[in-house]
């Protein structure tokens, strides 16, 4: 709650919740057969955006909670996505603190690394449960996520400025 009293423009809770719910909906949207393995990691992208630019309102706790929600919705092992999202956001927070990345491009490059870690954890967990996965398209997800990053970044930033601007 203490973060809300800060004066500098942060995300508002309403916008954060709406964008995260939209990301979950995009994750559940049916895709044609060939695109199933290429689905960008929508939830991780929106989470990372807010990690970079909401000044502590969104972090590993939210990532964990949303990961559990995703596991329940998908019917995957409970905690699988929670672990992957938490670790990916952790890496993002650590690197963000030390490198101070601020432009959308540098954050996008960091995002590719985070999505790769996310995929790697899912790959390992799946490997333990059901044997190794052989579909090479699985490893293209960091790239497809990168393609959508500028859109997410500029749309969310625009919304964020308008929302906080109208509030203050």
């Amino acid at each position: 709650m203490m973060y809300l009293q800060r004066t500098e423009p942060t995300g508002s809770i309403g916008l954060i919740i709406i964008s995260l719910v939209l990301a979950v909906i995009l994750t559940l949207l049916p895709l044609p057969e060939w695109a199933i393995w290429l689905r960008p990691a929508w939830l991780l992208m929106v989470l990372l955006y807010w990690t970079f630019s909401s000044q502590g309102m969104v972090g590993m706790g939210s990532a964990w909670f949303l990961g559990i929600c995703l596991d329940v919705l998908n019917g995957t092992l409970l905690g699988e996505h929670a672990l992957a999202l938490t670790l990916a956001v952790f890496v993002a927070i650590k690197l963000q603190n030390s490198l101070r990345l601020s432009t959308w491009l540098s954050q996008g490059i960091l995002l590719v690394g985070c999505v790769f870690i996310y995929q790697l954890i899912l790959f390992c967990v799946q490997g333990f449960i059901a044997g190794p996965l052989v579909n090479w398209r699985f490893w293209l997800v960091p790239l497809t996520s990168m393609l959508f990053w500028p859109w997410i970044y500029f749309i969310l930033r625009d919304c964020q400025y308008r929302w906080t601007g109208s509030r203050s």
Binding site: M2, G56, G59, M60, G61, A63, W64, G67, I68, L77, L78, G79, E80, A82, L83, T86, L87, F90, I93, K94, N97, V125, I129
Partner: peptide, 25 residues
């Protein structure tokens, strides 16, 4: 409450997730 212990938070959350996974499996 504080943002300055990301490692501890990560360890707590990750071990909770792993415990859930083991229990669920």
């Amino acid at each position: 409450e504080r943002e300055s212990y990301p490692v501890v938070r990560m360890l707590v959350l990750a071990s909770m997730a792993i415990a859930l996974m083991v229990a669920d499996h």
